[in-house]
Design a protein around this nucleic acid. Structure first.
Lengths: 218, 218
DNA sequence: ACTCTAATCAATCATTCCATTGACTACTTG
DNA sequence: CAAGTAGTCAATGGAATGATTGATTAGAGT
């Protein structure tokens, strides 16, 4: 059987693809990019049962993409390293560029984005000095694990409340997990509906961190 | 069903992973990085039947990773873009770093590499000026599609013959498709066995081209 | 010790995957 | 147009996948 060694080697490469061949597992990776999470939290995020989520996490673990540790009676999973994050980013780019119909699915999920204004990371860096209001619209735990220096935590369910507390004519910039995260869009729409200027940061926090821009923790 | 839109979107991202979840398809991508190929050539490269190879290519095409065009009575496939190449590279890196047992499979396939000397791309750039002999140990078609400027084509089955024609005490540098390609190793071992100095270029031609180093065509 | 919570394990079953085979289609050449 | 070559299509069957369910294990609190 010539080529059997080569086949085994490439099957091994393919095991990484296999781990990322299921939508629920990809959602798990997308959440884990934001930081360590318990099985139950992850199950909630991807809308699956704990048992099912546990199985998926074990598939990811067998492929070497995540590792777990125990903390009390919870088990916390995290990505094995930054390369995994960058693999997921690359996969997302390839899908966005080449998968037929993805743009349509993204619009169904995110809504029409043509009316939403974006801010580039570079511009936000400059505006941070002027004291622009930056909203981190992710669950609070993700904000604590790391956020854009100067941002305030506004979890999705507190957007309405924070809206009323906004001072005068300040501009708001919102961001969340990444380019396909709905929370920032929702925040921008809510603020805009009040006649205030609101923009969305391009991509999300992981991209900001990866660009080496100022990050704060806690 | 809340989250159904999100699920469909992430299923779509996962379709890229699914395309790369099979070892034979990953082998196909690895060959296609070197350039356009017919179904029959590809079938030969991965050691599968034409029918099976055709099916796999269609899976890759449905995921948007490859496209085909007809040329006479052959059908030529190629990658849809450089992002696909870079996705495969990233996947290989993640696998090499995180997949348990991959190092062992690689050694089974490639043999012991501890005795093989490597040359970095930077060093080869400098040495090219001194007229070092560089062997492109890929099939001739891949050499024609693009090669390190100054290299000569020495397909695997011509290594022995070329060995005898080697002038005096020249040093040989060999390269092929990438870090997991056996041909360059074989060439280096064969030349070394004659008491001559021979080294392997780090990685392979795609990485050289991607680094923006001098490339020649034809 | 018992009780509760968080997670994993084990079994099930419908679905999908994939190598194989043989038939069929597209194009070229004589 | 007949013959040959290169690919694709369609059907098959064994193996793997993944959501569900219920049982089991690890640790915390009482």
């Amino acid at each position: 059987m010539p080529g059997a060694g080569k086949q085994r080697l490439f099957d091994s490469f393919a095991s990484v693809g296999k781990a990322l061949s299921n939508g629920r597992r990809v959602e798990l990776v997308d959440v884990l990019v934001q930081g360590e999470r318990s099985v139950e939290e992850l199950a909630g995020q991807i809308g699956q049962s704990t048992a099912n989520t546990s199985q998926h996490l074990q598939v990811l673990a067998r492929a070497g993409l995540v590792v777990s540790r125990r903390d009390g009676n919870r088990v916390l999973y995290r990505l094995t390293g930054p390369q995994v994050e960058s693999l997921w980013e690359r996969m997302r780019l390839v899908a966005a560029e080449h998968v037929a119909g993805l743009d349509r699915l993204a619009e169904d999920y995110l809504g029409d984005r043509t009316t939403l204004e974006e801010v580039s990371r570079d511009e936000l860096v400059r505006r941070l000095a002027d004291g622009v209001v930056v909203w981190d619209v992710r669950p609070h735990a993700e904000f604590v694990a790391g956020h854009v220096a100067g941002a305030v935590s506004v979890p999705p369910d507190q957007i309405e409340q924070r809206l009323r507390e906004l001072p005068g004519d300040t501009e708001v910039v919102a961001y969340c997990r990444g380019p396909y995260c709905v929370f920032a869009d929702e925040a921008v729409r809510a603020v805009s509906a009040q006649g205030r200027r609101a923009r969305r940061l391009e991509d999300g926090f992981p991209e900001w961190r990866r660009a080496g821009l100022p990050v704060a923790v806690g």
